[in-house]
Computed example of a mutant assay.
Amino acid sequence: MIKARVTVTLKNGVLDPQGKAIEGALDALGFSGVGSVRQGKVFDLELEGSDKAKAESDLNAMCEKLLANTVIEDYTVSVT
């Protein structure tokens, strides 16, 4: 069994309204000094098999086809 984590974030320059809302909410809750908030998403996956190279290849394909909108999002894959 291979465990992996995929982290998807908006590309630099893409507006992040959720990040702005979180930033405002943190300030309203008294957490001053937060300069900028960018939000993203994390996927934890378990893949059958033990071939790390194939798992990384499959994960990249999953990101390109479904998990990330590569026009506006970047992703990173971490396999353990």
Rank of each mutant, 00 (worst) to 15 (best):
M1Y: 13
M1R: 08
I2L: 14
I2Y: 08
I2Q: 03
I2F: 13
K3G: 14
R5K: 15
R5Q: 14
R5T: 14
V6Q: 09
V6P: 00
V6T: 04
T7R: 09
T7V: 11
V8R: 03
V8Q: 01
V8S: 02
V8K: 07
T9Q: 12
L10S: 05
L10T: 04
K11M: 09
K11H: 12
N12R: 13
N12S: 15
G13W: 07
G13E: 02
L15I: 14
L15H: 14
D16N: 04
D16S: 05
Q18F: 03
G19A: 11
G19V: 08
K20F: 03
A21C: 05
A21R: 00
I22F: 06
I22W: 01
E23P: 00
E23W: 09
E23D: 11
G24T: 13
A25Y: 02
L26Y: 06
L26W: 07
D27N: 10
D27Y: 13
A28V: 07
A28R: 11
A28M: 10
L29M: 14
G30T: 11
F31K: 04
S32A: 10
S32C: 10
S32F: 10
S32H: 12
S32P: 00
G33F: 08
V34S: 02
V34F: 09
G35F: 09
S36A: 12
S36R: 05
V37H: 00
V37D: 02
R38W: 02
R38C: 03
R38D: 02
R38A: 10
Q39P: 00
G40R: 01
G40K: 00
G40V: 09
K41S: 06
K41W: 11
F43E: 01
F43S: 06
F43W: 12
D44Y: 12
D44M: 06
L45Q: 07
L45G: 05
L47D: 05
E48M: 05
E48F: 07
G49R: 06
G49D: 13
G49H: 08
S50R: 02
D51H: 05
K52Y: 04
K52D: 14
A53W: 06
A53Q: 12
K54D: 15
K54E: 15
A55E: 08
A55Y: 03
A55M: 08
E56I: 02
E56V: 06
S57R: 10
D58F: 03
N60Q: 13
A61T: 11
M62Y: 13
M62D: 04
M62G: 02
C63P: 01
K65I: 02
K65P: 01
L67A: 09
A68W: 04
N69R: 03
T70L: 13
I72C: 10
I72F: 15
I72M: 14
E73R: 04
E73C: 08
E73Y: 11
E73W: 08
D74H: 07
D74E: 15
Y75W: 12
Y75A: 02
T76Q: 11
T76S: 14
T76A: 14
T76I: 07
V77Y: 07
V79F: 06
